[in-house]
Structure formats: C-alpha cells, structure tokens
Design a protein around this nucleic acid. Structure first.
Lengths: 146, 146
DNA sequence: TTTAAAAAAGATATAAATGTCTTTTATTAA
DNA sequence: TTAATAAAAGACATTTATATCTTTTTTAAA
C-alpha cells in the first residue's frame, strides 16, 4: 500500500549516494545494491531513469558511478514519485470509479481523498535535501535506515 | 494508490445489493455488473469470496442472487480490505524496507505511517452500515455514486 | 591504443493483479 | 422430473510491476 518498490529503491539509492558520496566519490550500483540489500539489476534500471531526469549525475567507466548534482537536494519527493509511479494515482477516484468527483463523491471520497491530499502535500513540500539535512525535522539519522 | 480494484468492486457490489435489495429482492451479478459498469466475471469472483466470508448471502437458481444478512451492516471496512487485499500492507514499512521499525525508522516512516494509521483507524471504525445509514456522516446519498 | 571498469540499453523472465471463459452445482417453477 | 436460472468453481488469459541477464557504449588508466 501507498508506495511502490520502485519508489523505495529510487529514494534509498539517491540517499545512499548523497550520504556516501559527500566527498565527491562516485558510487557504483553494485555498492548501493550490496549495502541496501536491493536487487542489483532492478536498481540499475531505476537509477537510470533517476539520472535521465537529472536528479543524479552519472559517469561511465573506471572510477565512474553516480553522484549528486546541484539539482539533487532541491528535488521534491512528489517529483520522484511521479517519475517512478506516474501521476495518475495522484488524481482520480481512490476506488478507481470514473464517475466520482467532489460534486458526486463515491462512498469513501471525502475521508480518503483527504488523507491522500495530506500525503501529496507532505511529498510536495519535502525535498531530498530535507532528508539529509540535520537542521530539518525530516532528516535521516543513519545510513542503516536506508 | 491506496485501494485495489478488488476492494472497490467488492465495496460497490455490497452497497448496490444493500440499496437495491432492501425489499428482500435477490440481486444477480449481471445486474450489479451492468449498473456499476464493472467486469462481470471478475466481480463474480470477488463476490464469491464476500459470500464465503459471510458478508453477504447468496442463493443459486432462478430468482436467486445476492442478499444482505444480519452481519452485513456490522462489517467494518477494514475487514473487507483484509479479505480483498490481505493484511500485510497494514503493517510493515511503507517503503517495504525490512529493517525499518519505530526505533530504527526509514526516512519516511513517521510521516507516512501516521497517515496510514489514520486510514486504518477510519476503516476500523466505519461499517458498511454507516455508508447506507442517513443518520451517519459517512452515508451515501445516491446509488449513482457507487 | 589496449584493457578494464561501469553505466546505458534493451531483451527476457517471473510474479501478482486483474480479467475472461467454461463447466458444475444448486434451486425453482412448470 | 425436466428445463431454465444463477452462483460456485476452476481453468485460462492479459496486464502491470518487479526482477534478471546480456550486449553496447563510454571512460580512465596503464
């Protein structure tokens, strides 16, 4: 419920690169997959689209790997979610009922839409930077929780 | 996000039977599928497990179909959800991260768990009866919103 | 300039959710 | 007791999400 595997892998991968690559070191997929116990090839596919969307940089070849860029910490969680899961889930009826809208709400509309909106708001105001910034209430304490 | 198709079909099917079958009339799958614009065979599969779990009654043969029983209106939404979607999604990390728990929380733990708990609470206190009881704030106004 | 490293690309595989079809069983009315 | 009706059961199909494997391209260092 709530969040896809792809989203989880992408987020954890980015945060791992952010924390381990602070000194400018490039981080390889193998290291991320090992450290986070995540399927290597699937992670590679996800990271590829993260790079394609400019959230991380990457370089091929020896000493290559993934690294943060100027955009990374300003990216909002909602943007990452759109990338991994698409946008359709963010609008539309929670029961996938086409005729449902605020004027003609399905039985669960108000209660559930309300909670979904809260999640969207949360994800629209939280950046990746917030998660690695100790001054921010959202920050992560330890790499072991990625 | 949030709710599966199966859950939506089950809920809408049950509510349709509740509203259309008030006079004791049995409601057939074909009618439900037609009226709610839902795939007939898939709905039949879902309704079968609804009956197996005692949430509705059914009788075969001419003039047969689905009907409410004494239990129907007391069933909580969370019970229906457990039936259609299983229980695993209700516990465990929202990022499917095995090492995550309240002492060692993943980056999104607190914020998202909080919202999920709200949904669980909502679904644990709302019954099917609430949705068809005009005195209740959750009630549905019209069959067209099923 | 050759070799090795590492991501990119793309093909393929598996699992889970969703959807469809056919056969069987139970029930009712004629 | 037969014919028609409708759910139950179960097999099968499709789609989407997840996962894996192989080949290609780029890069750096020797």
């Amino acid at each position: 419920m709530f969040l896809s595997k792809s989203f989880g892998y992408a987020l954890r991968g980015i945060l791992y690169v952010s924390l381990s690559g602070k000194d400018g070191r490039k981080i390889q997929v193998d290291e991320i997959a090992d450290q986070l116990s995540v399927p290597r090839h699937f992670l590679a596919k996800v990271m590829k689209s993260v790079v394609k969307n400019g959230i991380l940089d990457s370089t091929k070849g020896p000493y290559g790997g993934f690294s943060i860029n100027k955009k990374t910490f300003n990216v909002k969680l909602i943007q990452l979610m759109e990338l991994t899961d698409g946008t359709e889930q963010l609008s539309g009826c929670v029961l996938s009922f086409k005729k449902c809208n605020s004027r003609n709400p399905c039985p669960l509309h108000d209660r559930v839409i309300n909670l979904r909106d809260k999640l969207i708001t949360e994800f629209s105001t939280t950046t990746l930077g917030d998660l690695v910034d100790e001054k921010n209430p959202n920050f992560i304490k330890s790499i072991s929780v990625l």
